[in-house]
Design a binder for these strands. Structure first.
Lengths: 334, 334
DNA sequence: TTGATCTGATAAATCGTTTTATCAAAACCA
DNA sequence: TGGTTTTGATAAAACGATTTATCAGATCAA
């Protein structure tokens, strides 16, 4: 059951391999192949169901029509939704996406980059972890388009698409304060990636601007990858040990654990406790009461990422790097 | 910035390309290469950071160490979670996964299979749509391992891993009946894939066995891919036009839409309306009241899929096809 | 001593494309 | 007419690995 090669087609059509190749690649006109030959070869290709071997093609041309997408965790709904949108849009332009999760491990991220590199992907979309700056610089030296998204990597000069995490966080805290809240907690993760830091900074800045004291006991940093039960018990501790009347969760999975924690202790969300989650989730629209959330414009992020990539892939000259900051918006569900 | 090739390494080490290749592939002993040469070449490889070009390797060997995973929709949490588990497990065995979504389109599914085929993936994990039977048979003829999961394809003789949808549905309906419910609705989709049909059959069989009439007005089939607002309004209609005291949602996203619908009309889940969702979701654990759900054992499914694949990849002879049915369990959260 | 086996290594074919260089014949031009 | 350009097509090199066949010299067995 060997699959057909261009050679078989050439044989059947009684022309050379070169001719077939030109026809396949739409260079027939340019290379002045006669109409009759084009027709004949095309007919044979269709009838035989011949599909060019992409591996051989990639080996020769050095590109693959594949874009590599590296995210933190494909099972997180934020990433899976963005991935799906990116996939759709890329697909329409003839590009395929292959994705993989880093789980925030520097080592795995490096391995993935190497894997993609040895597969000759044409471009990279990366939600990076700190520590892979040099690997990314290598890609850039290699003239491969690299778009960072969701979080930037200070020290790497490339394209970035992300939401305005600082402002969105600031506004969330501001809204708590305007409700009259005074003891505002932040539940975040311990990974030091830029978007998490920005969220932390937005929190602190809002407190300062509105003349509330910053109390580090109200900031809980959950280790990334920690089992959920432990996270829930950490959060219960937080509430037990402190007087808290509002809480911002810096990621949607933390908010989910947090809501479970709140359920287990005797707190009711509403008057005595306000909650905002960062990154929306179906659960928040269904929760009783509804949970407010900071919503990143997924569609717009995906669209921008793809646009930047395609621009670069189609331009022969190196384009100026762009930093696209897209506003995130607080969806108040009170 | 050309990347290094095996030729460069051979040159530097002053040996032949063949020798380097043997060393890279661990055949040095077998091919009786001297210890000294092995050491020298390995040193150069490490120092130079040489990584073999996988494309060239694939072209020559015909395989890729890549497994293709085709799901219905990667942004559905059931699939993204299974995908992530499969990815982890495959990764540990040196295989990479590339995934893509079919969106239940026959055409897109065929295209994806072709894309994977022309990339020479070593094996296929597919959550199929009806209509791609012939394409799958071609893969099998080609001696590529194919594992169907989540839903089987009658008429294709290959491996299958999935939950016992019939029994789980039957038990769900049975539990409604034991609560004393008499007007039990089913909200499902219009796609005629096996797992959906099984769920439907389980529903009907349970009604029959417990001597309840089957009323087709109580079965709502939502077109796949329909906008959520419309789904919600369909479900509201269902409740408006019928006396319903229990409802089984055949997928988690339908359950989410359904819960939103219930929220909008004046129904309260509890005494007057019981709800079970098929496939669990974070939202159900947080909902007030808690929502019961049929939980598929994701970990076990992923584990079994990978095991079947690896067995086949490592065995030279064709193994007998296996149909692994894993029990799904009803998590009662009342 | 001679033929056989082992040791250590390599040259060259191969995988299936794309692309460059080349060529013969026809058409054009002055 | 003879030189130049166009037309229509091809042969062969290249991409970067793996693998088969081959080889010279050393060792061994009888």
């Amino acid at each position: 059951m060997k699959s057909l090669s261009i050679k078989d087609i050439a044989l059947k059509a009684n022309v050379s391999i070169t001719t077939v190749s030109f026809i396949i690649n739409g260079k027939a006109k340019e290379k002045s192949i006669s109409e009759a030959v084009i027709k004949k070869v095309e007919k044979i290709i269709i009838e035989s169901g011949y599909k060019p071997n992409q591996i051989a093609r990639s080996l020769r041309t050095g590109n693959s029509n594949i874009i590599g997408l590296i995210v933190e965790d494909i099972s997180n709904s934020f990433f899976s939704k963005v991935a799906r949108l990116i996939e759709d849009k890329a697909y329409k332009k003839g590009y395929k996406i292959i994705y993989s999760s880093t789980e925030n491990s520097v080592e795995k991220a490096k391995e993935l980059i190497n894997m993609f590199k040895s597969r000759k992907v044409d471009a990279y979309i990366i939600s990076p972890v700190a520590g892979i700056e040099d690997d990314i610089k290598l890609l850039l030296n290699d003239n491969k388009p690299v778009i960072l998204f969701d979080r930037n990597l200070p020290g790497v000069d490339t394209n970035y698409v992300g939401a305005n995490h600082f402002t969105a966080t600031y506004q969330s805290i501001e809204s708590f304060i305007k409700e009259g809240k005074k003891n505002i907690a932040l539940v975040t993760t311990d990974v030091s990636v830029q978007q998490i830091i920005e969220r932390f900074d937005g929190y602190k800045q809002a407190l300062t601007d509105f003349k509330l004291p910053y109390n580090e006991n109200l900031v809980l940093k959950i280790p990334f990858g920690q089992a959920e039960e432990e996270t829930i018990s950490n959060i219960k501790e937080l509430f037990k040990n402190n007087k808290i009347d509002a809480v911002l969760f810096a990621t949607n999975y933390l908010a989910i654990s947090g809501l479970k924690a709140v359920k287990q202790i005797n707190k009711t969300i509403g008057k005595d406790l306000s909650v905002i989650a960062y990154d929306d989730h179906e659960a928040f629209e269904l929760h009783t009461p509804l949970i407010s959330a900071v919503q990143q414009p997924l569609e717009e992020i995906a669209e921008t990422v793809i646009k930047l990539i395609l621009n670069q892939l189609s331009s022969k000259t190196k384009l100026a790097n762009q930093q696209v900051i897209i506003p995130a918006k607080l969806i108040s569900r009170n």
